[in-house]
Nucleic acid binder design. Structure first.
Lengths: 148, 148
DNA sequence: ACACCTTGTTCATTCGCCCGAAACGTGGGT
DNA sequence: ACCCACGTTTCGGGCGAATGAACAAGGTGT
């Protein structure tokens, strides 16, 4: 929880322990107070990164919208969400989409492609980690940095 | 890179965009200045986790971003991380990248070059220690004080 | 019965990355 | 001046992934 400490004149400045703490010396102009509160709110929002959610009916919600997913793609989505922001191996995904592994060598690729198209409108992106797996993240500026 | 903005009296307070930015109104007591710089340093240390991390899928995380590494470069990276901040010999690197040593005369050079380019965007740098080996470290962040 | 849509699957082709090799540039040390 | 260590660019083969097309099966509404 973000905190703004009000420090009396004459007292030594405190030593904040994390990003959600700040302090000002009282008395303080209204404008400065507002600015620091706004900064704390912004930091707080950045820290609590929102995660997409998938309900039992295969509906994904993220940001302001939602999409529904067919069974196979819902299974893939669930596996990707369990490791949101980290790599999920192709084999793990195959098991998540089909109880006994993907039926064909290429089935997974095709369903990942379709899943990509569906969740793209929500601002979600599935990154490929070549020969290792896939990674789900928000389509945010500069999480992953790529050469131009 | 952490920043402490010095704001003239009469100017409106700035709106920091992230956790590594703070501001004070000049003139400012020495003590308050020190306190805010110390807080920034602490946050910076918390944020850019002191050392980079490499997971089993070849993904390197450092600061706010990540990149994925192909197998050979992941091997090199692992060796460099095991001795983070210290020199790793070329022979040790060759063994880390290939089970039976580097295949060609300058294969290691090329892969070090490619690794450099990949991790450069994360703020990581591989320094050459001539005829000894290589050394991995963070792009040294210096405190920047700017007039606003 | 029929047209139409969605879903799951397979196939064929294209795309782009990873890697090794070769050739050349550069700068330091002796 | 010369050698040596390393940096950088370029090329092609191999291969995993992306993509588009096609098709079967099942559902739905007319």
């Amino acid at each position: 929880m973000p905190r703004l400490l009000l420090v009396e004149d004459g007292q030594p400045p405190p030593q904040p322990g994390d990003c959600l703490e700040d302090w000002v010396r009282v008395p303080v102009p209204e404008l400065e107070m507002r600015a620091r509160v706004a900064a704390l709110e912004l930091r707080s929002a950045q820290h609590a990164s929102a995660r997409p959610e998938l309900d039992e009916f295969g509906v994904v919600r993220f940001g302001s919208g939602w999409v529904s997913l067919p069974p196979v793609e819902a299974g893939l989505m669930r596996a990707l969400l369990d490791r949101y922001g980290a790599v999920v191996g192709r084999d793990a995904l195959s098991r998540a989409g089909w109880a006994d592994g993907a039926p064909g060598r290429n089935a997974l690729d095709v369903h990942v492609l379709r899943l990509r198209r569906r969740i793209g409108v929500l601002g979600l992106v599935i990154r490929t980690v070549r020969s290792r797996g896939y990674l789900l993240e928000a389509d945010e500026p500069r999480h992953q940095v790529r050469e131009a």
